[in-house]
């Protein structure tokens, strides 16, 4: 993955302020000597205002609100650990967590395998930018659009998917309307939207693997399968790890598809954690409690990211 975070060479080293000017070098410019702090502050001002007002302060405020009772109508009232105590005993919270995890497992499981297949196929078969572009297309249209297209295609009466099931002699399925199928359906719809994008990221990782490794293996008569397990997988691991961390975190934040199609139902089958927070905050105006759920979600995501990075040893590559 070429995130390039470490690519700061050439500018990161401090200006040699005290070193004597080399002979023949132009005289030091006094304006640069003091550093560019005043100018930098001007250039940073708008972004810093935005960062402070819409990231830093609200993040701290959510943490604070989670210890209060706040309904938007009156100022927040300190409530200590009440919200967290309530959280522990809230059946709907635990259900939302369970439903979300179910979604993430299906979504990430299918998506990662399919994307890996797509990326390897593209890598071995074609350099076509058009194919990559086509596979990326679903990622560029809105979640809402994707949800509505599939909502239509999966409709019990006129949906093409049920029609196809009928052709092969199966009973129609009420995809969004059944407690047992709603979450897998939503998970697979979003696989469709994200799989090309994920494949593209993995494809970039594959391109970083030196061709010579494959050529050497081919001369040794290694089979495709053997090359995949012995070369591609180990060398792709750092990229795969990063992709997994990003997609898992993204996957936990499923909201749009649920909001447009099932609205949490049938019963509580798709009341995912994001939707639960939305309901608590914006339909019941329990802002304090919703903030506590946010904090819990954040803790889960942070813990998960750390765990993944540790397990998958994302930092070091087998190439060295």
């Amino acid at each position: 993955m070429r995130t390039g975070i470490g690519r700061q060479s050439g500018t990161a080293e401090p200006r040699p302020e005290t070193s004597p000017p080399r002979s023949g070098a132009p005289a030091p410019r006094p304006r640069r000597r003091a550093g560019d702090l005043p100018v930098a502050m001007v250039f940073l001002l708008p972004a810093a205002v935005g960062f402070a007002a819409f990231y830093l302060w609200p993040a701290l405020r959510t943490a604070y609100l989670s210890f209060t009772d706040y309904s938007l109508l009156a100022p927040p009232e300190w409530a200590g650990l009440d919200n967290y105590r309530r959280l522990l005993g809230d059946r709907l919270f635990w259900n939302s967590l369970k439903v979300t995890v179910e979604y993430v497992v299906i979504n990430i499981g299918v998506q990662t395998i399919a994307a890996l297949g797509m990326a390897v196929l593209m890598h071995r078969l074609t350099r076509s930018g058009l194919i990559r572009g086509v596979l990326l297309l679903p990622y560029l249209v809105a979640n809402v659009v994707v949800a509505l297209i599939w909502y239509t295609m999966l409709d019990a009466q006129l949906g093409i998917v049920n029609q196809a099931l009928e052709w092969i002699g199966l009973d129609p399925v009420a995809f969004f309307g059944e407690t047992s199928t709603a979450i897998p359906t939503i998970a697979l719809v979003n696989v469709w939207r994200h799989v090309g994008y994920t494949a593209l990221l993995l494809f970039a990782g594959l391109q970083a693997i030196p061709k010579t490794v494959y050529e050497a293996a081919a001369t040794d008569g290694a089979s495709e399968a053997r090359m995949f397990w012995r070369i591609t997988m180990p060398l792709l691991r750092p990229a795969l790890a990063l992709v997994l961390v990003l997609t898992v975190i993204g996957s936990f934040q499923i909201f749009d598809t649920v909001a447009v199609t099932t609205k949490g139902g049938p019963i509580n089958a798709t009341r995912v954690i994001y939707y639960y927070i939305y309901e608590q905050a914006f339909q019941r105006f329990n802002f304090g409690y919703a903030a506590a759920v946010c904090v819990a979600l954040f803790a889960i995501l942070a813990g998960l990211a750390l765990l993944q990075l540790k397990l998958l040893r994302a930092g070091d590559s087998d190439l060295d």
Binding site: A53, F54, Y55, W57, P58, A59, R61, T62, L65, L72, I249, F252, Q253, F255, Y274, I277, Y278, A281, F282, F287, A290, A291, C294, L297, F298, L301
Partner: peptide, 13 residues
């Protein structure tokens, strides 16, 4: 930071 983490206070603002 997940967007929802800042969405609540941003809404209040």
């Amino acid at each position: 930071i997940p967007p929802i983490f800042t969405a609540l206070p941003n809404f209040v603002t």
